[in-house]
Amino acid sequence: MDSSRTPDTTSQEPLITVRDLSKSFGPNLVWKDVNLDVYKGETLAVIGRSGCGKSVLVKHFNALHKPTTGDVLMDGVNIFDLDYVGLRQIRQRFGILFQGGALFDSISTFENIAFPLRVFTSDTETEIRDRVMQALERVSLAHAADRSTAELSGGMRKRVGLARAIILNPEVLMYDEPTSGLDPQTSDEINDLILSLSETLHITSIVISHDMHSVLKISDRVAFLHDQALHWLGTVEQLKQSQDGPLRSFVRASEYALT
């Protein structure tokens, strides 16, 4: 881990502030009283066991889920108080790579990436083509532009999803299990891509993962969800030295030897 990437979280205002957030689905509590800040330019990993509510937590950051109690502030504004137009503006500051890519299967790879441009910009057809090809080149898939999404492999779907997520130049990129279901080599390519996007586009990244190899490679800070709460929050260096029982147990179970 390059320590120069670790942001100085004490000297800047958080981009996203999560305050006393709790979420239940009917009688089932997912987690409660989560407090968390996300700083501009950092890569924050959210880890925890399957079903602990990592995706649910992160989907509150752009109001795809509504909390049972608590607030999420972006630039000091509570996003749950916004009307539809305000919420749309907040959502357009985010790009999301969904777990399975969430590509629209009725249209081609090219059209999937062009979709946000067609809906939200007044770009000409030539400008759209240029921007889509640029995004595809960034994820090394320029040759697959005209393919149907059904013909794409798991890794390719994630990369196309990533190209679509960055096409509107978001400030924050959220990755939902970016390496799950991929072989180690493709996982590493995706990790390198996430690092490269963070560095070249200066994007704030939030990564949901239980792949500890990936987490340690790409993250600045780590948030560990355990026992229906945000159990641990700290930098990657702190994680490596942490003696916290549940955290060490989770990391060891991920078959990653702490150094």
Binding site: N62, R88, R91, F94, I96, F98, A102, L103, F104, P116
Partner: peptide, 13 residues
């Protein structure tokens, strides 16, 4: 397959 979430996350109704 989260395609509806993808639409919402783009800011589309």
């Amino acid at each position: 397959s989260e395609q509806i979430d993808a639409l919402e996350s783009m800011g589309l109704n």
